[in-house]
């Protein structure tokens, strides 16, 4: 066991866990932020995606000991009122079916748009390929990302 001080969604949190504990389980079990989802545990499905200093990462495969003082942003902290352009676009396109993978999709999409505000179709596909949606909402996800990109350009 070791104590870590994490910067999560703009606040500082102390946790005492084994150093091998993945960020995902620290978030879910210890900090009780359960919006970040467990899907595969081996960085293959993207359900656990969070931002680490603004970059999309798979929290299921990141030991807590590797985080250091980097800023962690989860779906709960993406926006204060659930009004990030990507979240609004997701609602406007009525993307979710079961909804389980969507937090990860949104976190990955928002990181993409932060780096590349006007991605092409193929850039969207490449960037999003690590996020599986078992319900098959891929067509709407792409529409929502384009909508968010457009909203960003008008903001």
């Amino acid at each position: 066991m070791a104590t870590y001080t994490l910067k999560i969604n703009g606040t500082s949190r102390d946790v005492e866990v084994d150093p091998s504990t993945p960020l995902l389980w620290v978030l879910r079990d210890h900090i009780k932020l359960v919006g970040t989802k467990f899907g595969c545990g081996i960085a293959q499905c993207g359900a656990c995606t969070v931002h680490l200093d603004g970059m999309a990462v798979r929290s299921c495969s990141l030991p807590i000991s590797s985080i250091g003082d980097k800023e962690v942003t989860t779906i709960e902290g993406l926006s204060e009122n659930g009004d990030h352009p990507v979240q609004l676009a997701w609602l406007e396109e009525d993307v979710p079916q079961c909804g389980y993978c969507q937090a990860g999709q949104i976190m990955n999409a928002s990181a993409l748009l932060a780096q590349n505000p006007y991605p092409s179709d193929s850039e969207i596909e490449t960037a999003m390929n690590g996020n599986i949606c078992r319900c098959g909402t891929y067509v709407r996800i792409k529409k929502a990302i384009k909508r968010a990109a457009e909203a960003g350009s008008n903001a």
């Binding site: 779906i75 993406l78 009525d94 979710p96 909804g99």
Partner: peptide, 13 residues
């Protein structure tokens, strides 16, 4: 629209 949409996109339990 999905009645749970807002909760889904904000990561509510």
């Amino acid at each position: 629209k999905n009645v749970d949409g807002k909760k889904i996109v904000t990561g509510q339990p």
